[in-house]
């Protein structure tokens, strides 16, 4: 069965840090259209602080996810600090002490992430939030994996679902967060949280491909 070692998983968080740093301006520009233009800045600040912390105290995937979560929750505010803080914390709980992370565990990580967002937000699919990416991505991965697809194939399908979910937010009217006060005028622009969530899930898939055995 395809899996990767928890000890090799630190590269996933390293790649996440890189992709958020590279997309700092892009995420802020998207946010600026209907929000206040700081999504990329705040994400970059949190992920960069995480990079500094991991340089001092490196570790396995569980450790890296916990570090990222703790920094987002204690240092980065807004709504994205707690949302992504819970997101990565719930994933770290699933990787836990496991020596290997297989498709079964990864599917549980995605479901846990959905559940964690739902504990602090009452947003639903269709509200123009990161759930429009996360929910279909988790569902697609688990559906393919349950039907007998291998880890890599399920990851590939998850990426497609995430991208499709991200693009679906363009025509939605925002129901949550700052953009929700814009009503009809929030249509026609991608949701910044959905866009960063798509980047995160696609990067995780690509990183796992590098270390899967």
């Amino acid at each position: 069965m395809q899996a990767f070692l928890n000890t090799n998983g630190s590269v996933i968080v390293e790649d996440l840090i890189t992709v958020i740093q590279e997309n700092r301006q892009y995420l802020s520009d998207i946010d600026g259209a209907i929000g206040d233009g700081d999504h990329g800045i705040n994400m970059n600040k949190g992920f960069t602080l995480c990079a500094e912390s991991l340089k001092e105290t490196p570790g396995d995937l569980t450790h890296c996810l916990n570090t990222l979560s703790k920094i987002l929750m204690t240092k980065i505010g807004g709504s994205m600090g707690p949302l992504y803080g819970f997101f990565f914390q719930s994933m770290a709980k699933k990787t836990g002490d496991n020596e290997k992370v297989n498709g079964q565990i990864f599917g549980e990580m995605l479901n846990a992430a959905v559940g964690s967002i739902q504990t602090i937000s009452d947003a639903r699919v269709g509200d123009k939030t990161l759930l429009d990416v996360l929910v279909p991505a988790a569902h697609t991965f688990n559906a393919y994996f349950a039907q007998g697809s291998d880890f890599l194939t399920a990851l590939h399908e998850m990426k497609s679902a995430a991208i499709k979910g991200r693009d679906s937010t363009k025509e939605m009217i925002a129901k949550k967060g700052r953009a929700s006060r814009l009503g009809e005028r929030s249509r026609g622009v991608l949701d910044a949280g959905a866009t960063s969530c798509c980047l995160i899930l696609c990067t995780m898939a690509d990183s796992i491909k590098k270390i899967i055995k």
Partner: peptide, 12 residues
């Protein structure tokens, strides 16, 4: 005290 136009985290 949060970042510019951004809520402080729960810890604060």
């Amino acid at each position: 005290v949060g970042e510019i136009f951004s809520s402080p985290p729960a810890q604060m």
